[in-house]
Design a protein around this nucleic acid. Structure first.
Length: 254
DNA sequence: AAGGTGTACAACCGCCGATGT
DNA sequence: AACATCGGCGGTTGTACACCT
């Protein structure tokens, strides 16, 4: 995030100092809206303002995560529970890493995507401080271009030309250009993937598969020096990944 | 300088599974 | 068993800004 949001890192004192003013300001806003619109409780949408971030951050730090629907009510935020949860998870949570991906992170994303497909939360679990949303965005904007036969699904599914503005049309055009508009089902794409010009070499896959095999043999004792570090992911995810390999037909090659 | 277009990423939506009642 | 609620996920859209013509 840019300079607007970097204020979080300047310390909680400032957060608390601003929170009172922010809350007051928001409550005033709400009063005004209630007055003007006959008071049907509305859920605010769109970009989060810094004062909203401060309120949410302070609230969660005080009361803990969870019960997101009540967070929005009790904190005075006029956001949906989901929106609060997403904002916290993706931006306000401690240890979120901002800024560009390092080469290592980029390599990891490519490798993991090759193995797991669009399992963004699993991939993000291997990248400390990165969120699934960030990984997904990074893939779609940076890395997808290198693997042009990967699809972005339903963007092409409206052949009637219902795009009612030029920007949408432009977006669809761009995305079509990226994807070559060819269907690639996860399973039937097995053979196609082998023909793809990809940034991931077969040697990588071999290496990754071997790393995973290690965990399968000894899942309770993960080796911290291994390629994959499972941060905050439940153990089940190991098997989840394994199943994914199986479905891609990788397992037989080990 | 102004308008169009492209890029990056924040945020929303709909679906689904888990859990509680 | 049926329903409601919540949280998580992936796909998609919205928007700010940079760049181009």
């Amino acid at each position: 995030m840019g300079p607007i949001s970097s204020y979080y890192e300047s310390g909680t004192e400032i957060c608390f100092a601003f929170t009172f003013l922010a809350t007051h300001s928001l409550l005033k806003d709400r009063e005004r809206e209630m007055e003007s619109k006959e008071a049907k409780p509305q859920v605010k949408k769109g970009l989060w303002r810094p004062e909203e971030d401060l309120i949410l951050k302070t609230y969660v730090e005080t009361h803990g995560e969870g019960n997101w629907s009540t967070v929005s009510k009790k904190s005075g935020l006029m956001r949906g529970g989901k929106s609060c949860r997403l904002r916290w998870k993706n931006y306000l949570r401690p240890n979120i890493k901002r800024g560009g991906m390092s080469q290592d992170e980029e390599d990891m994303i490519i490798r993991m995507h090759k193995l797991l497909g669009n399992r963004w939360s699993l991939i993000a679990g291997r990248l400390p401080g990165r969120t699934d949303n960030e990984v997904k965005n990074y893939w779609n904007t940076h890395l997808n271009k290198r693997c042009p036969s990967r699809k972005r699904t339903t963007m092409d599914s409206d052949p009637d030309g219902n795009q009612n503005n030029s920007k949408k049309a432009s977006r669809s055009k761009r995305i079509r250009a990226l994807n070559n508009s060819q269907p690639t089902e996860e399973l039937e794409g097995k053979s196609q993937e082998k023909e793809e010009i990809s940034a991931v070499s077969d040697a990588w896959i071999q290496h990754d598969a071997q790393s995973m095999n290690y965990y399968i043999e000894s899942p309770m004792v993960p080796d911290i020096s291994a390629a994959f570090v499972f941060d905050d992911e439940p153990f089940l995810a190991y098997w989840d990944s394994f199943v994914s390999f199986e479905s891609l037909g990788c397992v037989n090659d080990w």
